[in-house]
Design a protein around this nucleic acid. Sequence first.
DNA 1: CTGAAAGCGCTTACAG
DNA 2: CTGAAAGCGCTTACAG
Lengths: 335, 335
Amino acid sequence: MRPNRPKISDVARVAGVSTATVSRVLSNPDLVSSDTREAVQEAIRTTGYRLNLAARNLRHQRTGSIVALVPNLANPFFSEILSGIAAVLGEAGYNLLVADTCRTSAQALIDYAEPGRADGLIALDGRLPAEELKGKVPVVVACEWIPGLAAPRVKIDNRAAAGLAIDHLVALGHRRIGHVSGPRGNVLTEARIAGTQDALAAQGLLLAPADLHIGDFSLGSGREAAVTWLAQPAATRPTAMFFASDPMACGFIGEVQRHGLKVPEDVSVVGFDDIELVAHMSPPLTTIRQPRHDIGRLAAERLLARLKGETAMDDTVLPVDLVVRGSTAAPRQPA
Amino acid sequence: MRPNRPKISDVARVAGVSTATVSRVLSNPDLVSSDTREAVQEAIRTTGYRLNLAARNLRHQRTGSIVALVPNLANPFFSEILSGIAAVLGEAGYNLLVADTCRTSAQALIDYAEPGRADGLIALDGRLPAEELKGKVPVVVACEWIPGLAAPRVKIDNRAAAGLAIDHLVALGHRRIGHVSGPRGNVLTEARIAGTQDALAAQGLLLAPADLHIGDFSLGSGREAAVTWLAQPAATRPTAMFFASDPMACGFIGEVQRHGLKVPEDVSVVGFDDIELVAHMSPPLTTIRQPRHDIGRLAAERLLARLKGETAMDDTVLPVDLVVRGSTAAPRQPA
DNA sequence: CTGAAAGCGCTTACAG
DNA sequence: CTGAAAGCGCTTACAG
């Protein structure tokens, strides 16, 4: 079946017209008289012709594809953003190309930004090299951002989000609050640490260096934070912990419970992201909800707008919510 | 920068050679004398030339892309399979195109199987129409399978997996065991129900119609199953439940705990998939581990082999493990 | 309204 | 070892 796949010239021959006319029927039927049009459509049917998109795209100097660069495809946080991106691109007739930045060489990632490869790029990873991305395909950055790269960003207000978490804990009566962050250097990490410090300072409190644990967003690093926390004397360790991701909060809770302590009685826990499962744990997790699907949708829409000529480079900042569930309560002994 | 992007003819002019020679330096450098080769490479450098993949692909009658059709991109179960696929395709120099079958029209999905759109297709969704996929691009099916479509399948032994779960519960002393399945008609659903029934029958037990709850793999349907279960008299309801997905098991446990009952003391629970979080819940979930990343890898490898001419259509069946954790124990009152 | 022809940016037999 | 030329399957000014 592969060799004798009909092409536009086969249709033209069968219909007794030129290839130009067939092409017009395909992309601009109004330009063709109805008699001719019907003859061509009949020929399309009898030959079983299907348009070769690659050829059309080459002619149009576009690829019809948008590439999304994702730090870790296996991470549900990113996959839901991807789902929002896919929804918008699919409707607009674009292909969605996906690459996993943690499993792809730096050069291969940059090659995705070549025209001829994709028409535009959505970066969910802030560690991409800004310089190498210049002069290539239009870029929109989502969630994270790339310092030094002029590109629209779709994100949440991470400092404000951290503030929501801290204010909630302080309102419950907590005075000694710890923070488990993402990896150092990540833009989200820094924004959430800064937000935590600011919110504490606004309440006259301090993030003690010992109470800042550098994690990596993973379950395992949450468990490690629990080990450190458990090793401290019960009287002087933080009564509440704010995590820069839900999986870290889950890892922490699991380890603390395994040691016979209770959440929120012995320690209050706030996560970040509101991934689906955390509402169903025991206790259900208090967390910051990010509109992941919308982040993806908006990033895709901004990119499509750029491809249509929009030049605005302003950021889109989406609101976050604090979702209060069972993992937070007043501390046992208020300071 | 877009308009004056150098093409192969610009390089040729600068180097003082023909476009054919530049092309050879690019794809088959050994055919060119070292003097000429160096001159061309120098010209490539000075012009900043980058190959246009779309043009090369059109010439080669291939697209360089493989499309993965995923039932729900936001579902972490599928995203990890995708990650395995991406790893293999990236290494092989293929693009990974992704489409969400639940958000894409049937026609649009079939169009992905057109040559000119992609070189091959990996289906993670068993509901695609077999007839429409014939005579198009080579297909490999992973996880689920498409009845009536001759395509290699990469999957696990779902009946055996259900047997592992049931045997474990029976060994613990359970006699009345319920099953919460996926949606009716799904090939996985039917295989897991059949496996459950077989394993029970082998032990002289029966899956009572009232103990089979039809779910849809989601958290919410697990919660609904809990409502039904809770409504039954404690003395006569199942002492153990086997779920066709981890999220359903989580939804069930959350609802049961909310009603003051305990897992595994009041009911043992076995999930399916071993998604990352369930090891960290309380209790940690006993479940069937699927090698998701490997399923993705192997599916991609089978497809690449087909593109290279392999014609074998046999299935690849991957082993599963029962992971015993805290959500299962002996029943309170053995029957 | 329709066709002949050029061209998108490459690659590759075919000569030499 | 290298070049002239044809062609991958489309589209689109330009004529008529």
